[in-house]
Design a protein around this nucleic acid. Structure first.
Lengths: 221, 221
DNA sequence: GCAAAAGTGTTTGAGGTACACCCATGC
DNA sequence: GCATGGGTGTACCTCAAACACTTTTGC
């Protein structure tokens, strides 16, 4: 079965950049391509958009296929379409990025991937095609979005310490923040409440646990 | 001649939203479609992406075809691809937006358009397909971008009065600004210098003309 | 008692907002 | 001389940034 058109048509894919935080670093999920083109190179996971599938739906499908995740912050980064970005045929990709808490994330080498791994953003391998540029743009966008205090919550479990929350902000921004200023700002946002519980880890004072307040939770979709 | 593929391929277009300021209002260029689908309806101008043409290049080409403009601020808004957005076949569009000074802008009904006109953003007609939603998103994005003081300069001639500059800010933001605060901010940006010339219009004190300083001009690309 | 992370307030500077009057011109 | 838009300065408030010590725990 073939599909014919009067004019040449490009193929359209979605690529999904999965951001997470692990070992106090911002990381992205990459796959090692098992097939040509770019066989053996690391790449952003993605796939073709179904002919009757919306772009967003295709992105959700890819996210779920690659990571098992059904709910996350998933937003469009933009379209990338240099004519030479794929040697087989003209492929235009629409990139999405997702924020997923590490413990919600499962992944494995799949049908078209030899391997799948998290890479720290500061320690990326050489990437297939223009994926390096796409990742760079995604990281910029993520940093911009951080002014929205709710964004990093996607990267944390439902209960977390202020130190954890600050750590997430820091590794996205790529710089240290002042503890007192940070807590003041979080407190004044009114989004968080103490659970009353504490977390003991190591030989030091235990940390209070926080959660998102019920009202704020609604805003997170 | 036909082009055949093993899997169905969508068509890809670029749509270019041309923003300008006229009569103290933010306007966009729309065309009235001369052909089906959506014949007779107003739409954002656009066209198919050449199979060997980058997305940005296609956007520049469309901008030039529709308006004669070769230089402007032209940025990608994003991809829109609901499967039902065109009845002929699956069409995914990549929307760009451009800021063009009114006096650089020429347009006329073209090959596929019965008519072409500027519409105030606050007074849009019913639009074809999902173009209403695309425009709405473009306007939001433009407002965000306004924090960059250089952006509205694209909408003005090289010499302009402070009142004009303020007027552009106001109609993009959709609200009045305080004259003294506005001038203070512009002055402190260091981007502008008085030309020494004045403009006399009507029975009142003439306005000083300003231009972008040589050094700042470089930053605008 | 000591190492290690949790927790807590105050001061300062920059930038945004509010606000009212005189100036130069055409008629 | 009056109507019209051009042009100017000060006071206040908010928010971000800098900065150091005490608390609680495990060993």
């Amino acid at each position: 079965m073939t599909y014919s058109y009067e004019y040449p048509h490009p193929a359209v894919t979605v690529d999904v950049i999965v951001f997470t935080v692990e070992e106090e670093r911002l990381k992205v999920l990459l796959i090692r391509r098992g097939q040509e083109p770019f066989k053996g190179q690391w790449a952003i996971p993605g796939g073709f958009v179904g002919i009757d599938e919306s772009l967003k739906r295709a992105a959700w499908r890819e996210l779920k296929e690659e990571t098992g995740v059904r709910a996350a912050l998933l937003q469009q980064l933009g379209a990338f379409g240099r004519p030479d970005r794929d040697p087989r045929e003209r492929i235009i990709t629409v990139a999405y990025y997702a924020l997923v808490a590490r413990e919600k994330l499962t992944f494995r080498a799949g049908s078209d991937a030899d391997d799948a791994r998290l890479f720290a953003l500061s320690d990326l391998p050489v990437l297939a095609s223009d994926h390096g540029k796409i990742l760079q743009r995604a990281a910029e966008r993520l940093r911009q979005q951080l002014q929205d205090v709710t964004v990093p919550l996607q990267l944390l479990p439902t209960e977390f310490t202020m130190a954890q929350l600050q750590q997430v902000h820091e590794c996205i921004l790529g710089r240290k923040l002042d503890k007192r200023n940070f807590r003041k700002k979080m407190k004044s946002s009114g989004l968080f409440e103490a659970t009353g519980e504490q977390r003991r880890t190591g030989s030091h004072r235990p940390a209070a646990l926080y959660r998102v307040t019920r009202s704020a939770n609604v805003l997170l979709r």
